[in-house]
Computed example of a mutant assay.
Amino acid sequence: MRVSFTKMHGLGNDFIMLDGRDNALPVLASPAVRALSDRKTGIGCDQLIVLEPSTNADFRMRIFNADGGEVEACGNASRAVALLHGKAARVETSGGIIDVAPAEIGARVDMGIPRFEWDAIPLAYAMDTLSMPVGWDTLENPVGINVGNPHVVFFVDNADDIALGQLGPVIEQDPLFPERVNVNVASLSSENALKLHVWERGVGLTRACGTGACATAIAAMRRGITARTVDVTLPGGTLAIEWDDNDRIIMTGPASESFRGSFEWDDFA
Rank of each mutant, 00 (worst) to 15 (best):
H197R: 15
E92P: 07
E70M: 08
R115D: 10
R2D: 12
I249L: 00
A73S: 14
V71D: 00
G75H: 11
Q173H: 14
I43L: 15
Q47C: 08
N146Y: 03
I43N: 04
S131A: 15
P254D: 14
L167P: 01
G75P: 07
R60C: 11
V170F: 03
A217N: 09
S262T: 05
T129M: 00
S78Q: 11
A186G: 08
D137F: 07
P122E: 11
A89Q: 10
N13H: 06
R207W: 07
G212D: 03
I16N: 00
V232L: 10
I250S: 03
A255E: 08
V33D: 02
D110C: 13
T229Q: 15
A255S: 13
C74I: 01
R222G: 05
F64H: 12
I43K: 05
E140K: 15
S94Y: 06
W243V: 12
F5R: 00
D14Q: 02
R21Y: 05
A66V: 12
P142D: 07
R108S: 15
V91M: 02
A186F: 01
D128G: 06
G12A: 03
L48N: 12
Q166G: 09
P169Y: 02
N23K: 14
P254A: 15
A213W: 12
F116L: 15
R60I: 00
V170Q: 13
V156R: 00
A103E: 13
P31K: 01
N56M: 06
G237V: 08
P53W: 08
L11T: 12
V198W: 07
G237W: 00
D110L: 03
N146P: 02
E117I: 08
V153I: 06
I49S: 02
W199T: 07
N182K: 07
T206A: 11
V33L: 02
M1S: 11
L84P: 00
N158G: 06
E117T: 13
E72K: 06
I49W: 06
L28Q: 02
I241K: 09
P102Q: 13
A101H: 08
K195L: 12
L25H: 01
L51D: 07
E264Q: 14
P142V: 03
C214L: 05
L18G: 05
E242F: 01
L167R: 11
A269P: 09
G20L: 02
K40E: 14
P133H: 07
M251P: 12
A80M: 14
S30T: 04
I250V: 14
F15A: 09
V91E: 06
G148D: 05
G253E: 09
L48E: 05
V143A: 05
R2H: 14
V170S: 07
R2F: 08
S187K: 10
E191I: 14
L130S: 15
P122I: 09
R108W: 06
L188M: 14
P53D: 08
F59C: 04
V156G: 04
